[in-house]
Computed example of a mutant assay.
Amino acid sequence: MASATRLPLKPILFTTSLVLGVGASRVGLRDILLKTVTGPGKYRRIAAVLFIIANIKNVPFFWHYRVWAAILRHCLFSKPEIGPERGPSSLFLPVITTSRSPLYECDYNLHKSNSTYFSDLDITRSHIICALLQPGIAALQHNKEAKLVLDKDGKPFSGRWSIMLGSVMCSFKREIGIFEPYEMWSRILCWDRKWIYVVTHFVKKGTVKPKAYILGDRTWFGSKGYKHVRGDGKIRSKEVDEKSIFASAISKYVMKLGRLTVHPEVVLQASSILPEKPGGWATMSGPSGESTPDVVEEIDTSAVLVDSKSTEWDWRRIEAENKKGLEFAAHFAALDELHHEFTGSEAPALGKYPEGILW
């Protein structure tokens, strides 16, 4: 994602479109279509084309297209403009990504293979991070001008911006059948002094609808900006039938400038989605080049008493919601110590086998 946002995207898209346009004008598309659907062997050719179309999601390099489409949508064509007046209330809202499970993605039980959930997570995480944090990401990319992160001398810290995935965990509840459509609801769960945690639920399509959509423009080339649009959902209760949830996953991201770890709250505040807080939120002031500690901070519960009927997302309510998410993230972060269980050469191995059968 970081490499993609550093590229000159508009010149690349213009050049690619020009090359494809010129190439298409020199190719007889009509003749190719006729040769495909007529003549000897037409049924095999038609069957092959239909098979590819039905499994387009798993065609080589299509994963790259899906990721780039998510990044370009939010970072180039429809840059988010949530604004500080609506930003805090949007911080924990989900982005919904739709997909389905083609034949090539299924295992021998004709269910979506467990490994393919993780490639889907790459796509939906790209949507939530770019849609919500695009202003903060842009500020980090141009840190010399934005002066978002300063070194010990008060000068803008120089370094390449990057975002890295630390780990992913997925809990499977129910199978997704062949060609069954589903939705991925991804949102910010919480953050600590180093990581941003993203939670994703795989949900049966059409079972649950949001109360409303904050992002009104759902096209690439439509009007920019966010507006409140009435949703078409019928279910208003927070309680959702567990049979509608196929799986739940949690991922954690860290943002870097060079080798310096950027505190998540710095990016969140630069994206105008944090409310005013007495004393301010976290800053990057301090010794240059030192990463923020990978710890889960304790929050004084007496400082986060929230009126349950209040609709205002002030700093107390943000802190309370973040603390609730940290209770899950703390268990997830504890799994980082699992590598200490690797026995290595301390004990014999049961066996060593090649991946295939005949080689």
Rank of each mutant, 00 (worst) to 15 (best):
M1L: 14
A2Y: 01
A4E: 06
T5N: 07
P8C: 07
L13A: 03
L13M: 09
T15S: 03
L18N: 10
G21Q: 04
S25Y: 08
S25R: 11
G28C: 10
I32L: 12
L33Q: 14
T38I: 09
G39D: 13
G41K: 05
Y43F: 06
A48Y: 14
V49Q: 00
L50V: 06
I52G: 03
I52V: 01
A54Q: 05
K57I: 01
N58W: 09
F61D: 02
W63D: 00
W63V: 01
H64G: 05
H64Q: 05
R73T: 04
C75A: 02
K79F: 11
E81S: 14
I82Y: 04
G83H: 08
G83P: 11
E85L: 12
E85V: 11
L91T: 12
L91Q: 15
L91H: 14
V95F: 02
T98P: 05
P102W: 13
L103N: 09
C106E: 12
Y117W: 07
D120H: 06
D120T: 02
D122R: 08
D122I: 04
H127R: 01
A131R: 12
I137C: 14
A138N: 06
L140I: 08
N143T: 11
K144R: 15
K144F: 15
L148T: 10
V149P: 07
D151E: 04
I163H: 09
I163N: 05
M164Y: 08
M164G: 10
L165D: 13
S167L: 09
V168K: 13
F179A: 12
E180R: 10
E180V: 11
S186R: 06
I188K: 00
I196V: 13
V199Q: 14
T200H: 03
H201G: 00
T207G: 03
Y213E: 15
W220C: 14
W220R: 14
K224V: 13
G233K: 00
I235D: 00
E239P: 00
F246E: 00
S248D: 07
S248H: 06
L257W: 14
L257I: 14
R259I: 12
T261R: 15
V267E: 08
Q269P: 10
A270M: 15
S272V: 05
S272K: 12
I273T: 09
L274F: 07
G289W: 08
S291D: 15
E297L: 03
V306P: 05
T311S: 13
R316I: 13
R317M: 12
E319W: 15
A320E: 14
N322T: 11
K323A: 15
E327H: 11
H331N: 15
H331Y: 10
A333Y: 12
L335M: 02
D336W: 04
E337P: 06
E337W: 05
E337G: 08
H340L: 03
F342E: 02
G344E: 09
S345R: 10
